[in-house]
Structures are given as structure tokens and as C-alpha cells.
Amino acid sequence: MRGFRTARLAAAGVLFAVMLPAATAQAETASPTSYNVWQWNVAGNTFHGGRSDTNMVSLAASSIVYRNADFVAFNELCKGQFDELVRQLAATNWPQVETNFARFEPSRQANTGVCGGAAFGNAIFSKRPLGTADRIPLADDGNTLERRNMLCAPLTDGSGVRFCTTHLTTVDSFKWTQLGEINQKLEAWSAAGEKVLISGDFNVEPDYPSMNSFYAATANTPHNGGNVGSYRELDDNDAGNCPGYGEPTSNTPPSPTNPTPCGGNQKIDLILVRESALAAPGSYSADALTTSKDCTPGSRNPDGLCSDHRILTGTVTLK
């Protein structure tokens, strides 16, 4: 029976998610639950030209299954690549419900000069069934072809857990505004009793002043100080990798005039959770994975590097 459903998905080429009602209340006696989070900006247009046959999609699907991810987020993903990920993940029996585990939200619509004519944007995947997605446009940075957004969806299991992704602008003057919008939305969900995980390419580093309103004061270190927010980043407590900052996630060296606090490449991909949602202080960890060079070479990746970002994985235990 599963083979029949998988074949039908492959024939359709896309997944139209069943929009189940969002959970409105947490279970009365919720016990701590651990979640594995997997995040990657895949450079789906820049490195892969919108193609799904460069091995990036297959490597991503294999990594998601191998690492037993509960939540998955992609940035710079082309719609055809999303459809192929849906097909491959459904074929692995990874999701609990193969008709309700994926959401896609374009930041660039079809026929805007990317992805071979397809749409381009953010995507989330979940092992557990998802409720109705919130598709939130962020402040307009003046780019007439692209509108940055935040994509979120709650689980339908009564846990009160919601997962989000975002990809912020590269225009410095608008980053503060977009970060403020995201923070405000996350705090509203938290005030309503939800536990929110957000991952994505924030295009800012943990030690930037614009992130002080996100990071909690308990995250302060010589590498990332002045914080007044409510969130921890799943890689901020690794004593061996720049405490308070974390491991690099970019494969592009930083400008000599803007060095990172511990040297090396930048960390701009983050997985954030509100400190008050943690089952216990420090009940999380993360790791930035070395990017594979097993993708089809192109003009921007002549050595077969699969992205200009590293995959970021993390584990967190929530109340």
C-alpha cells in the first residue's frame, strides 16, 4: 500500500499538504521531549541552477534520515528541489504521515530569473504531522524581485511545539527591522503558551549588536556579550568551539576588515529556542557539518561543493 502511495507522489511531482487544524492546547501533563533539528541553506539556484539531479537533494534526504531529524529547514531552495525532497523523504518512510510533513514558501515567485523559472524560497519538513502554516512576509528591503519571509507551522500532537525558518535580507539597514518583526512574533507565540524553535540563515553573526535582543544574558561570553534577550542558540554552549558564538556555518571566508571573534569563517546559520522552554539549563547541543563535495560541479562550485553553507544540526529537550 505504501508503495502505491509513493508512486502516486512521484507521478504528481509535488505534494499538496493536508492542512490539519493547529493544536490549540498543550497536553495537561507534558513530559520533556527531545527534538533533532537539521538546517541548511543549499544555494539551490546559485550552485545548482534549480536542478534536482546534482546530488544535493539526495545527499540532503540521506542526511535527514541518517540523523533522525524531527524538524528540517531549507533556505534558498527551488520549488523543483522541494518537490523532489518530498518524493525522496516519503519513499524512506521518514515522516509519520506522508501527506502532511512539508511546507514551502517562496521569497521569489516563478519566472523571476532564478531556478530555471521556478519559485525560490524557504521550506520546512517535520517527522510529525504539521498544522496550518503561518507565512509571514518580512519588511520590504527594496528588492523588487524578492520578499523575505518567515515560514512556521505547529505540530498537531498537542505538544504546543512550533517550528519556523527564515532567511533574512543582506541589506544591513533592514536587518534590524526584520529581526524585530521575528522576535515580536516569537514572543507572541510564547506568551500564548507555545514552544517555538526557529532555524535559518539570519545573515548576521551571534556577536552582532542586532542579535543582543535575541540572546539571553546567560549566553554572555567574551565572544558574545551585551545580550538582553530570552533565547539560546543550540551551538552557544560548546566549550571547544568559541563559547557564546559557535562553529562557523559559512564556507566563504569573511572580509579581513570584519573578522570573527575566534577566527575562521562566519556563523550566520542559527537554531534558536526560548530559554524558558528548555527542560533544563544547557539541555541542548549543536554541530556544523563539513559540506560535501560530491555534487555536480558548476561555474560557482567547480570543485563540486554542494553549498556555500554548512549543514547545522542540533538537539534540544523542551519542557
Rank of each mutant, 00 (worst) to 15 (best):
L305R: 15
S276H: 01
D294E: 13
T291C: 09
Q266G: 01
P248G: 06
S299K: 12
T296D: 10
P248Y: 05
L289F: 09
Q266M: 05
A288W: 09
T260Q: 14
N265W: 08
I268S: 08
L270H: 15
S255G: 06
E275L: 09
Q266T: 12
T249F: 01
N301Q: 02
D294K: 06
N241D: 04
N258A: 13
E247L: 09
A279L: 03
K267N: 14
T257A: 15
S276Q: 11
D303A: 13
D287W: 13
S292K: 10
L278M: 04
S285P: 00
G246A: 05
C242A: 01
A277I: 05
C295T: 10
E275S: 00
K293M: 12
P254R: 03
G264S: 03
P297V: 03
G240K: 05
E247R: 14
N265G: 08
G240T: 13
L272C: 03
I268E: 11
P256R: 08
Y245N: 03
T249M: 01
A288C: 15
D294M: 08
T252L: 15
P256S: 07
P256D: 00
P302K: 02
C242P: 02
I271W: 05
S250L: 15
S255A: 06
P281V: 03
T291M: 13
A279E: 00
G304V: 04
P261I: 03
Q266N: 12
V273M: 11
G240V: 02
C306H: 06
P297Y: 05
G282K: 08
L272I: 06
C306Q: 06
G282Q: 06
P254L: 06
C295L: 02
V273K: 10
A280N: 14
P281N: 00
Y284D: 10
L305D: 07
T260I: 11
I271P: 07
G240F: 01
L289C: 06
T290W: 04
Q266L: 05
I271S: 02
C295S: 09
E247H: 13
T252E: 15
S285W: 14
P256T: 07
C242H: 09
S255H: 07
T260P: 12
T291Q: 15
S292N: 08
I271F: 01
P243F: 13
A239G: 14
T290D: 14
C306M: 10
C295I: 05
P302L: 06
N251K: 04
G240L: 04
I271R: 07
D287E: 10
L289K: 07
P261V: 03
A277Y: 04
A286S: 14
L272S: 10
P256V: 13
I268G: 10
T252S: 15
E275A: 10
N301Y: 07
T260S: 11
Y245L: 07
P297G: 08
G263C: 03
S276G: 09
N241P: 04
G264E: 00
N241A: 12
T252C: 09
P259L: 00
N301V: 00
T296E: 12
V273N: 05
L272Q: 02
